[in-house]
Write a protein that binds this DNA or RNA. Structure first.
Lengths: 149, 149
DNA sequence: TGACTTTCCATAGGTGCACTATATATTGTC
DNA sequence: GACAATATATAGTGCACCTATGGAAAGTCA
């Protein structure tokens, strides 16, 4: 463990956890479960996907994704289509309403974050801004290596 | 909104969300639900508390906290005690086993984070280290103002 | 071609964990 | 000693996940 005194992973982990719970309980439009919101977000940002691929991407079982998509479809947020080349697969895509809702939620969460950030001292705000690419890099590493993370 | 081009709140929010989900699905000892883990963590770090206070702190209903504490008690992680001055209240405290488990989970999550951080370029790692106090400040702001966040 | 295996999705049954509404017990007030 | 307020427990309900299994379509090979 190359533990650097300047980087306390326990503090970082705790702060990340608490910050996310803070954002999660902020009121967002749409009343979606975390998994539903994440799935919709994935569909909006990366385009249509088949059910099994979605389940893998969201780390839920395939039956859970079938149910989740059924709920989203009932809410008019996604549509199910057929693959012309393979009669088994279901192609899930976000509807216009789904896209709008996802973007609205993203914007609302951004508002909350922006409000909090605006009350932070300038140097701390700058420190967070400087860390954003690094945090994204961390996520990319974790996604690429699901075994360890 | 004083939107600075250097701080994309949407990117920050997305990165935080994905990072937390990454950490959440990493295997931790104890098999606790997120709410249970958070409650145990609160008890370990801030000491014994009454049921209603715990429910408020964790943002769940009082019956949900009653159930949660019952599960934690059955697992031997917390103990329920009486208040000598008020026969109605239940004082919940972490047992030694609960304290050990919570610390072990915190350490395990730190390990995962440390592993990921170790594979990040030095400058990015430094950027995250520099942002830790600011992230903690953000959490403090959010906790102090539950209305907006 | 026809049987076998694989892949993709749906359904069934069960569980965990949250919620609202309500009951019970204790405390403080008049 | 009623009465209101507070702290917790119980009942009933619903959502969202899981494993196990079923059925349909596609690929494989004698």
């Amino acid at each position: 463990m190359e533990s650097q005194p300047s980087l306390d992973v326990a503090r970082l982990g705790s702060a990340l956890d608490r910050l996310t719970r803070l954002l999660r309980r902020s009121s967002l439009p749409g009343d979606l479960s975390p998994a539903a919101a994440s799935t919709l977000y994935t569909l909006v940002t990366t385009g249509p996907a088949r059910l099994t691929a979605l389940a893998a991407a969201e780390h839920v079982s395939q039956p859970a994704m079938t149910q989740l998509v059924a709920r989203l479809e009932a809410a008019g947020l996604v549509a199910r289509g057929a693959d012309p080349d393979d009669g088994r697969v279901v192609i899930v895509s976000a509807t216009d309403a789904g896209r709008d809702l996802s973007l609205a939620r993203r914007a609302a969460r951004g508002e909350v974050l922006a409000t909090l950030l605006g009350r932070l001292p300038r140097d701390q705000r700058d420190a967070i801004a400087a860390a954003v690419p690094a945090l994204e890099g961390l996520v990319a590493l974790g996604d690429a290596d699901p075994g360890r993370a």
